[in-house]
């Protein structure tokens, strides 16, 4: 019986890199706001970094992207994580492409293990104005 892990970190970034040899992850360009000049639009590439603890078992990972109206706009799944040691703190990053953004607003990424909800993280989408850019993607 798998033990669902606790989420220690759940970050949105421009890029995630894993160093060969040590396998340590780096999250580059962490952000929580997307600026866009027109809508609908597609964000070309963003990454999710996730660090876990206190879990054990085989997990199918799924992430859904929801808008404020509770509509599932996009998903990805098919990743498997195997944790054999409950004391391990596994982490991983996933580089994603072509995130659909229909309009400005507040959205959430929702993380699931074996189709069981684990945690969500919000992201704001803001129409661009000359003075509004800073700290986003």
């Amino acid at each position: 019986m798998p033990v669902k892990p606790q989420i220690k970190s759940f970050l949105i970034a421009d890029q995630v890199l894993q160093e060969k040899g040590t396998n340590k992850w780096s999250a580059i360009g962490i952000f929580d706001t997307i600026y866009a000049s027109s809508f609908p639009c597609v964000h070309p590439s963003l990454a999710l970094y996730i660090r876990l603890s206190d879990g054990e078992g085989d997990f199918d990972i799924k992430v859904e992207f929801y808008d404020e109206a509770e509509r599932a706009l996009a998903i990805f799944k098919g990743f498997k994580l195997v944790v054999r040691d409950r004391l391990a703190n596994p982490d991983f990053g996933i580089q994603t492409k072509s995130l659909p953004v229909p309009q400005p607003g507040r959205y959430t990424f929702r993380l699931y293990f074996n189709d069981e909800f684990a945690q969500s993280i919000p992201i704001n989408v803001v129409p661009i104005t000359p003075k509004s850019v800073g700290g986003g993607a």
Partner: peptide, 25 residues
């Protein structure tokens, strides 16, 4: 001291392999 240490292989965690995904619409 990275030069002096051989990185051990732990088998407790197997990470997802293909860590690139296109959002499915």
């Amino acid at each position: 001291d990275r030069g002096a240490i051989e990185y051990p292989e732990y088998e407790q965690v197997q990470q997802p392999q293909d860590l690139e995904a296109r959002w499915q619409t």
